[in-house]
Design a binder for these strands. Sequence first.
DNA 1: AGTTTTTTGTTGGACGGTCATCCAATAAAG
DNA 2: CTTTATTGGATGACCGTCCAACAAAAAACT
Lengths: 195, 195
Amino acid sequence: MPKVGMKAIRRKQLVQAAIATIHQHGFARATVARIAHTAGVSSGIVHHYFADKDELLFATIWEMLAELRRDTVDRQKHAASPRERINAIIHASFSDKQFDEQVFSAWLALYGNARQSDRLKRLLRLYHRRLHANLMAELVKLMDRERSADLAEGIGAMIDGLWLRYALTGRPDNPAHPRAITRAYFEASAGFAHL
Amino acid sequence: MPKVGMKAIRRKQLVQAAIATIHQHGFARATVARIAHTAGVSSGIVHHYFADKDELLFATIWEMLAELRRDTVDRQKHAASPRERINAIIHASFSDKQFDEQVFSAWLALYGNARQSDRLKRLLRLYHRRLHANLMAELVKLMDRERSADLAEGIGAMIDGLWLRYALTGRPDNPAHPRAITRAYFEASAGFAHL
DNA sequence: AGTTTTTTGTTGGACGGTCATCCAATAAAG
DNA sequence: CTTTATTGGATGACCGTCCAACAAAAAACT
């Protein structure tokens, strides 16, 4: 059913298929043909909507980051104090959407290939900077700048680190657990800052 | 110069070449031929000392873990108190050897491909368990079991998370910085446990 | 000691398979 | 009738693995 405006539809469709294929077959075996097959279209169509495979993968990671960003912004709305907003950031990082097993695989693939792709590396830096800036904006209200920077780096690292473990061992039994550990770190450090 | 006992020499040589090649060309482009070329030997030799490419990669990761373990054990010797031993673990995780850019690449590749390989997944779990057990052994002397487990998980995650960032952005200007952040987390949490 | 035989190390290319990309052909929509 | 969507296969490149052949050291033998 060839119609105009297929571009947006097909691109989303292929991005979703890419995530699913990376999850099911692994990054190395996520071939153009397999992704197209998962999407239910022919292999040729991929290069009709994406310049090459790299662009499809880039769009895939981009979509995941956008999802995380939407989630974070959304949760920020219902937070009043700096503490609540930091908790909202932590919550978004460990939300159900992020704990989708399919996202695990794609995210890991990103880490595994970021070093070779300038585009992917830039995307990851964007994520890091965004997380750091979001945390800093609230932390500076609670402590001096130097402490804030260290704590923002620590919280960011802990989120990624915990996340990494679940990406390898599967969803945590209790999704609140990683949140609790991260929050405890924040509270303990912020508490000391007050003394 | 064919002599007996080449096996140990060639295997180490190829493992080193594998790390270097993964670093220089990326995991996906670390082909058998390229690794062999880096090692200065012909491509055929690889299958003379390793069953297949997978075994070479497995041996490569194994060697990196062994190096980390040696470093950790070594630093433990000069540590007397639980606190010092925990600091030794943190120190080993952020040692100069670990901050080798080549090791970054290979480690990241491991994460990016662990999901597809049972052998690699087992290796990563071994690393996680070992780190967790090492931390737990000391933490239980300072606080109750439940707090120890959470803190051990948090410290482990923070080490991996900080590490991940440096793997993408390069060596930290000040190698003591990630150690300081991790130690501060430990001190803040252990301090609260005493109150 | 010198010579042959065996073992071990090493090479470079052949083979079969896989993959990204390209393209000619087809078809429906505007 | 032009534009857009889509197909499925052709093409050329690359890669892991295998293998026949060669080389040198070690062992066995005379």
